[in-house]
Write a protein that binds this DNA or RNA. Sequence first.
DNA 1: CCGTGGTGAGACATTCATGTCTCACATGGG
DNA 2: CCCATGTGAGACATGAATGTCTCACCACGG
Lengths: 192, 192
Amino acid sequence: MSHMGYSCLMALDRDHVLRSAAALLTRKSTATMDEVAKAAGISRATLHRHFAGRDALVRALEALGIAECEAALDRAHPEEGTATDGVRRLVREMQPAAGLLAFLYGESQLWEGERQNDGWQRLDSRIGALFQRGQQDGEFRIDLTPVWLTEALYGLTASCAWATMDGRVAARDFPTMVAELLLGGALRREES
Amino acid sequence: MSHMGYSCLMALDRDHVLRSAAALLTRKSTATMDEVAKAAGISRATLHRHFAGRDALVRALEALGIAECEAALDRAHPEEGTATDGVRRLVREMQPAAGLLAFLYGESQLWEGERQNDGWQRLDSRIGALFQRGQQDGEFRIDLTPVWLTEALYGLTASCAWATMDGRVAARDFPTMVAELLLGGALRREES
DNA sequence: CCGTGGTGAGACATTCATGTCTCACATGGG
DNA sequence: CCCATGTGAGACATGAATGTCTCACCACGG
């Protein structure tokens, strides 16, 4: 059983470690490799066998976050129905990834370098397309650019994840708070 | 001129150093003390004479950010006119502090500890009161709590500061993008 | 002219997270 | 039963940022 070392056990373990790390770093972004290992129930040595270093771990978490967002997009079917409902579905599906997203949002390591994951651009495109469709269909206002709306979606998601962890917002209200603010803003609608 | 060491020159220098540090750390939050000193045009030794350490520097920047936000609130007169216009004025006045705010937002050091600056609570109260007034006057919807609206204001401000630095949003559009999204959301208003 | 205080430059020790290595152990298959 | 593989524990070196210290210098006022 030598040549299959990475195929069965390691793959499962790796995913488990990755999710433990995500859960921990979401709460304490400065956690040390030792703490990450303990949180996953493995030793630092084994953690190193999975991820060459902290850098690699963060990169893997970045890939995980992107994958989860893309999965959320797949589940949300943003191209179906009204753009408004598409945004609501998207926010709902993104909630499980919100904490991880908030962590990645604050990892300067990912944004300062020249090289950055193409996944973000793919995500931006897909989300931006949703907002653009809403504008073309006359649902969304056109004085806020799709790029900014996309950025705002990330920002509100991260903010609400933070507020949820601090207890300032109830977790069950997350989809409403983010989607309703993003879509309708603070102003009351005129009774028509 | 021994006993007045901190009164004239040092005070001016300290403020200059603080603002240089804010400008640098806004762009590169991981800048080293050496880089901060160089950016301020002083040596690391002198930097240390102003701020006992990186921790103290960040704390001072926190106090500066809070002070600038409170000054923005003072200038905005949020209690006058409609709450809607109050929010617009507040966002406009907060723009100069947005970069610093975005930096502080990502400094886990400030939020993880037990002890945290009372200034944030004062700010939250004043901003929350503005949103609450809007709700009581029937301008704002009541299904989004003032606490969440306050959090969203911070989050959108930080997000837009980021987007501005990356060139995804023009600096001159900052007040519009933040205030209009926060107030009106992405949806078009019905023509009444 | 001289003394004082603030400064810059640099050497130095310290701390901490990280990366690397070895070795004993346990488990599971042949 | 024996061997191989993955693992945990720990020692060790490394590197970087930080905190501390000394000393020469310069400008200023007396």
